[in-house]
Nucleic acid binder design. Structure first.
Lengths: 214, 214
DNA sequence: CCACTTTTTCGACCGCCGGTCAATTTGTTC
DNA sequence: GAACAAATTGACCGGCGGTCGAAAAAGTGG
């Protein structure tokens, strides 16, 4: 059978019904925690009936999952492309990847700061974020580190472990819901991580400072 | 006014009503996720009425918080005591602390493995765990590392950062809910962390292998 | 022992949520 | 237009976290 006309119109304006729903959720997340957002509310914001939500998604949780995935599509693609650019230094590429992630995540939680409700409460969604990011990004980062080892720029015996350690520390530390900390503390931890990386990968002190973001 | 007799009886058998409720929750957590445990169920298991739960705790969430806190009382005390034992090598003390945490947490999630429901779902409670552990343990570990630096056993410029990095990586990695991984993968990450620590703190390769648990 | 106050217990009840479903509308094909 | 499939909907359901007032139990003073 031919595809429905409405579907084609949607595709043309790059807005499937699913996207509409995800947009609604994203908007609402600017104001409150996922726990305080009801499915009816999402439906209302999306301008459709509650029942329709369940025509496109099997559960409320799955909507959150889909949103997380959508928000990391771009940085993941960026990372995968960078993994092929062997001419660029591995550490530079790592920095670029983290920058891409950071942009995407600040975009995602644009209005979090102005939240009225208790910030620690939306930990739920942050966690899905972390999980997705770490598991998707690890193989890519591992490959880049492996290249660095081959090129003699990185001296370390456990590329996958190194990738994971860096990912975990950065993700956890930059997510204030898991370990609440003031900016100075974050900076110190990142500095410590950089110092540990420099010594651990046998690079001169200060050479990786550019990993420090912004 | 004098303390109530019942209160004293409770204290004698070391079982306050709160403890009774926490025990009930802990039992139930052996079988299912916190999301699938209702307050009525906790009450029933504890052998009291639902209303009584809310006489002792303001919310369901607060019960979970209290349980997490209770389960880390012992390892935290152990750690604080170890912080004073300056005669023991810092890394040995770190290993002892992690061992204490590990014992406590396996006790806590004793029957997780046999769970029927989807394991990733109880991420909620694990996260409370991580958060509590990291924030409470960080200052203690920092102090121990600082002692190691003074004694010349550890060469590193950021004690607090080092403490946090180690805590974060171990906590996240040993919690399979956040980054699902098979045992071999966990081992590799820990090995990588140890290698990074050895190089980073200017200790000979292999000297910290005893940090590897079990 | 009694009268009285304070603490504790309890389950019926409330509002709301995630999720279901039968009925209806919309779109497609011939 | 008839026949069929796809999409939409809101009333409805069971169950949840949390409230509340009544009442039982415990404590107090004489």
């Amino acid at each position: 059978m031919r595809r429905r006309l409405t579907e084609e119109v949607n595709d043309l304006q790059n807005q499937t019904k699913q996207d509409q729903i995800l947009d609604a959720l994203q908007t609402l997340l600017g104001d409150k925690n996922i726990q305080n957002i009801s499915v009816s509310e999402i439906a209302q914001t999306a301008g459709i009936g509650k029942g329709s939500i369940y025509y496109y998604f099997p559960s409320k949780d799955s909507i959150v999952d889909a949103l997380v995935e959508r928000n990391y599509e771009k940085p993941l693609e960026t990372a995968k492309n960078l993994a092929k650019q062997t001419s660029i230094s591995p550490f530079t590429r790592m920095a670029m990847i983290f920058q891409a992630c950071r942009n995407s995540s600040t975009e995602f939680r644009a209005q979090d700061e102005t939240k009225t409700s208790d910030a620690k409460e939306d930990a739920f969604i942050r966690q899905k974020y972390m999980k997705h990011l770490i598991s998707e990004m690890k193989p890519v980062l591992t490959e880049i580190i492996r290249q660095g080892i081959e090129q003699g720029e990185i001296h370390f015996d456990y590329p996958a472990a190194l990738a994971e350690i860096v990912l975990i520390v950065l993700t956890v530390k930059l997510d204030n819901s898991l370990v609440p900390s003031d900016p100075g503390e974050i900076e110190e931890t990142i500095l410590g991580l950089i110092s540990l990386l420099e010594k651990g990968t046998e690079n001169p002190a200060g050479s990786l400072n550019f990993l420090m973001m912004k």
